[in-house]
Amino acid sequence: MKTVFPHDTEVALAAAAALVNTLDGDQELMPDLAALDAFVHDQGWTGSRTHDLAELRAVRDLRPRLREIWEVDADRVVEIVNDLLASARALPQLVRHDSWDYHLHATTADAPLASRMAVEAAMGLVDVVREKELGRLRICDYPTCERVLVDLSKNRSKRFCDSVCANRAAVVAYRARNATT
């Protein structure tokens, strides 16, 4: 099955959205190092870690910069992407590790975790910008949800961040239809 973007791009975009969504309104979903460790594990991040509060703060500080990408026009996205790449002194290179065949990394494995996250997101966004597909970066359509999503469906139809919001919207629509009869 053909994907919308190369596999590593889709993984980077999904990881960026997942990172942004660790701050859900005022609710902190990455409150401590254990939560960061779980996030890193769940997202399959490799490379060195310091496992300290400075690393946690740096990762948390990245979220607003990435979140802005879902809210701005293409020119501003390009500025953010270029800044993320320049700040990390990104140097694209082909690498192979774990179960991954050759793919692009733009930082070394010993770069700080937040820098690796920023650069991976930026590298994924390069493809989105070049393909003029920024419309695939959306904010959940459920009225009280502010989570971000990446629509990788062929027909660009994904509207909700997860099945919980989709189900809530379906219930609201069902009740609205029945209220008029």
Rank of each mutant, 00 (worst) to 15 (best):
61 D>Q: 07
80 I>G: 11
44 G>V: 02
46 T>Y: 14
76 R>H: 10
47 G>H: 12
21 N>Q: 03
48 S>T: 08
22 T>P: 05
35 A>W: 08
23 L>Y: 08
53 L>R: 06
40 V>A: 06
64 P>W: 10
39 F>G: 00
72 V>G: 02
62 L>F: 11
85 L>I: 13
73 D>T: 09
27 Q>H: 03
81 V>N: 06
85 L>R: 11
84 L>F: 04
36 L>E: 07
58 A>P: 03
70 W>I: 15
84 L>R: 03
25 G>A: 04
55 E>K: 02
34 A>W: 04
21 N>H: 00
63 R>N: 06
23 L>T: 03
75 D>K: 10
71 E>T: 14
21 N>D: 00
31 P>V: 12
66 L>Q: 06
68 E>N: 02
85 L>H: 02
78 V>F: 02
71 E>F: 04
72 V>H: 07
69 I>F: 01
35 A>K: 10
90 A>R: 13
81 V>S: 03
62 L>V: 13
62 L>K: 06
72 V>N: 03
55 E>G: 09
86 A>D: 13
40 V>W: 10
85 L>A: 08
24 D>S: 01
20 V>M: 02
63 R>I: 15
62 L>M: 11
26 D>W: 03
58 A>T: 10
67 R>G: 02
21 N>T: 02
90 A>W: 08
86 A>L: 15
67 R>V: 14
78 V>W: 03
91 L>K: 06
57 R>A: 12
44 G>A: 01
22 T>Q: 15
89 R>F: 09
76 R>V: 11
69 I>D: 08
39 F>E: 03
79 E>Y: 09
28 E>G: 00
61 D>K: 04
22 T>H: 07
58 A>D: 15
46 T>W: 08
82 N>G: 13
89 R>D: 09
72 V>R: 02
40 V>L: 13
83 D>H: 12
32 D>H: 15
58 A>R: 13
40 V>Q: 01
74 A>E: 13
36 L>M: 05
23 L>Q: 07
40 V>T: 01
34 A>T: 11
79 E>H: 08
34 A>S: 09
74 A>G: 04
29 L>V: 10
36 L>D: 05
71 E>Y: 05
67 R>Q: 07
77 V>C: 13
